[in-house]
Design a protein around this nucleic acid. Structure first.
Length: 560
RNA sequence: UGGGGCAUGGUGCAACGGCAGCACAGCGGACUUUGAAUCCGUUGAUCCAGGUUCGAAUCCUGGUGCCCCGGCCA
């Protein structure tokens, strides 16, 4: 249980902010989270969201949500909606500051005109292939475009006609006039605008030229008065271009700061790869509970608190790293341990008949939902009868030492009920155990005997006649390798997909109260793990529960 | 010498010239009506080589290793 107040965020970014505040570069903190609506948000985005919103909060500043929707060919409204839902679910609020880069298309166009008038941008007629050739290589400088020295008037005319739709896709671009021999490829007269006769999810068919990321992003930050524009490491090389745009135009200058994106073991964290898994049917959708997407994690039973704690715990730096999945699982368990009601459910049922319990008799036990706080815990009534189910793995006919569950002749406690002793084992023709016979000690009602004798094993159980049937979905990691990209020559990350990442149990038995479970509630199925109702497939009378995560299992570890 | 960036226990992050610390994982024990949780204890690190300094993870020099960059993607 972690009641400790989280330490104030302190990292290399807050150090930079502190410096800016001290030297007067800025007198406030205003960040933004800039998703492109071309996929669902994942846990890596959560790191960025927590960073951007968290840092602003710490400094009494603001955070904008801005969709970076400058490429209509890959973007969809489905994504702009899911992204907003996911951020809200995570617990962050952009208030009235929802923006779209496309809101600025008009302004961006005006700025482009200004760049042309400044002699800092020109219309280039090179084809994409020619452009690539003229750009040079990593070690050789590029070559000036033959169109580089067009007059301002000609550029103005051509750019306006580009915007008016006079030219086909790919025939012309607007380029910044910087330096074709720069060792930084991003500065070799980068493309600012391209022609794209595509329908935009917000601006419709109004535009057929769309600004490129570097240009649009820098100007959008400036327009919104963003002080600290936090992005990932791969944009470090782009910062000189970011700065060039703002300096050349002489407008408000945000500071771009780069940090290392999140990597997690046993999963992939790229929208392109995740899209592939969805499209190719390796998972049921973006919200498949095995996906590292926020939608998937929510459906799986992750809480926003756990994810936020995780983001705080991993910290922020510029070093590429891979966080161990076990850390995520730890904060999840810690959070769930504090909030989940304890109930009983049998995953793999084995019938037990209590021979000396009167046939036809039943009784109910009042059982606390939070047994570690029996005094204050709310309770529910749990029925008990002569025939019950226990976990198949809780019985062994020929147990190893240290096995203190049920075995022939051994006595265990049925949680909150009675002590029972196994007297007989029934098997089918193939030798499989199909039923157990036991006797119970009526004196041990409630789970304690007056003589105070020690019973080491405590089992969960469900009354057979009262049990609810349910489907359980048990998840394992989506990939079998900590690093899914580790494949033999010519292989693909999909080769490492875990064929056993989903195990469906169709005949689980639940205590009857679970009929009232609601979506979004977490339960601990005692001695098994944390589960929640599946928001998509569960129906009344056909319950489906997802295992969010298993409990730590020291016994299983000992068996290895 | 194309350019940019990063190196601290197994993993992630601190230490900002002054005793290398935290979390996870591991290991050992206590407790237990969850083999959970909790509690107690414990193993384990500054990429390498020089230099500056009373003192270096931190500053300087030189290496080494890893990541990113040749979309009209973001």
């Amino acid at each position: 249980m972690s009641e400790d107040t989280p330490a104030p965020r302190s990292n290399f970014i807050t150090a930079i902010i502190d410096e800016h505040l001290e030297n007067g570069r800025f007198d406030r903190v205003h960040t933004r989270f800039p998703p492109e609506p071309n996929g669902y948000l994942h846990i890596g985005h959560a790191k960025s969201i927590c960073l951007n919103f968290g840092v602003a909060q710490d400094y009494g500043g603001l955070t904008n949500l801005r969709f970076d929707d400058t490429n209509p060919t890959t973007e969809e409204v489905e994504y702009v909606e899911s992204i907003q839902a996911d951020i809200r679910w995570l617990g962050f609020d952009w208030e009235d500051r929802l923006f779209f880069a496309s809101d600025y298309f008009g302004q961006l166009y005006e700025y482009a005109l200004q760049l042309i008038k400044l002699g800092k941008a020109y219309v280039c007629d090179l084809s994409p292939e020619e452009l690539r050739q003229y750009r040079g290589t990593l070690t050789e400088p590029g070559v000036d475009s033959p169109y580089r020295d067009r007059t301002i008037e000609e550029n103005l005319d051509l750019f306006q006609r580009m915007g008016a739709g006079e030219f086909p896709d790919g025939s012309r671009t607007l380029r910044a006039k910087i330096d074709m021999s720069s060792p930084n490829l991003n500065l070799r007269d980068p493309v600012l605008y391209r022609i794209l006769h595509a329908h935009h999810h917000r601006t419709g068919d109004k535009w057929c030229i769309y600004p490129m990321y570097d240009y649009a992003h820098a100007l959008s930050d400036s327009i919104e008065g963003i002080t600290h524009s936090i992005c990932t490491l791969e944009f470090e090389d782009h910062r000189p271009l970011y700065d060039w745009c703002l300096d050349t135009l002489g407008i408000f200058h945000s500071q771009q700061i780069e940090f290392a994106r999140l990597n997690l073991t046993y999963t992939v964290m790229s929208k392109r790869k995740l899209l592939q898994l969805v499209r190719d049917g390796y998972v049921s959708g973006w919200d498949d509970p095995r996906m590292p997407t926020l939608a998937g994690m929510r459906r799986r039973g992750y809480t926003p608190e756990a994810i936020r704690t995780f983001a705080d715990t991993i910290g922020v730096s510029k070093a590429n790293s891979i966080v161990d999945m076990e850390l995520l699982e730890h904060v999840l368990r810690d959070d769930l341990n504090n909030r989940a009601r304890r109930v009983m459910a049998v995953v793999e049922p084995l019938k037990v008949v209590i021979d000396n319990y009167p046939a036809g008799q039943e009784e109910t036990f009042e059982v606390p939902y939070f047994p570690f706080d029996r005094e204050n815990s709310p309770t529910r009534q749990v029925p008990f009868s002569r025939e019950i189910y226990i976990e198949r793995s809780d019985f062994m006919e020929d147990p190893p030492k240290k096995f203190y569950r049920l075995a022939p002749g051994s006595e265990v406690r049925l949680m909150n009920a009675y002590y029972i002793t196994c007297t007989d084992v029934i098997k089918d023709q193939s030798g499989e155990v199909v039923e157990l016979h036991c006797t119970y000690d009526p004196e041990s009602r409630g789970g304690m005997s007056p003589d105070g004798r020690k019973v080491r094993g405590t089992l969960h159980w469900v009354s057979a006649q009262h049990a609810l049937d349910a489907e359980l979905r048990l998840y394992d990691t989506l990939f079998t390798k900590a690093n899914p990209y580790e494949v033999p020559e010519g292989g693909d990350f999909k080769d490492n997909i875990n064929p056993e990442s989903l195990q469906v149990v169709t005949a689980a038995k639940l205590e009857p109260g679970l009929a009232d479970a609601a979506v979004g509630e977490s339960f601990q199925f005692m001695r098994q793990g944390y589960f929640c109702l599946d928001a998509v497939d569960s129906k009344e009378g056909a319950l489906v529960f997802n295992r969010t995560i298993s409990l730590v299992d020291t016994w299983a570890k000992m068996q290895k």
